[in-house]
Amino acid sequence: MSWGLAIWAATVAFGAAILAVTRPSAVHALLLLLAALISLGVGFFAMAANFAGAIQLLIYAGAVVAVFVFVVMTIDAGDEAMAAERELLRHAWRWPALIVGLSVVPVIFGIGGGAMGEGDPAPALASDLGLLMFGDWSAATELITLLLIAGMLGVRHLGRKLGPRLRERNPE
């Protein structure tokens, strides 16, 4: 367990995230998001959460981002679109920055200031995770599976081809 590496990886992820949410280009933002997710995965490995790190890399940084990539591939990323996106961003960031900034000081001094109790840095095993997820937490697991099924059905519904009657009702 190397806390130093974990902190470094998390810091990188934070920086990448800041950049990701401020880039005008969707492609750049997606790449930066990918960077943030991968460095988080590295951090997880550094904290001996091997299973979490593995699925972070495989599913999050792999599958989820791949879905994003498919979508981003379809959008227009030309200079005009970039200019339009910059124009949209020019003034819009002030109020959100101010309001989000409200939370920064208490987070730094509230969470960062107090010392957490001594930990018990014993590495956790993936087998324990399985026992927990399908044992005590089975209800939560069931819930999240239901959520995934609901998501799948929702996507199926949203992605359907509109028939002539429905198209009339939804002219776009």
Binding site: A92, W95, P96, I99, V100, L102, S103, P106, F109
Partner: peptide
């Protein structure tokens, strides 16, 4: 959506400040 997110952020900020003040 943006405005609602802003409201959400505002509420969060207030709550966090409140929690910080209480502790």
């Amino acid at each position: 959506l943006r405005d609602y997110a802003l409201g959400f952020a505002l509420g969060l900020g207030v709550l966090v400040i409140l929690g910080w003040g209480m502790t």
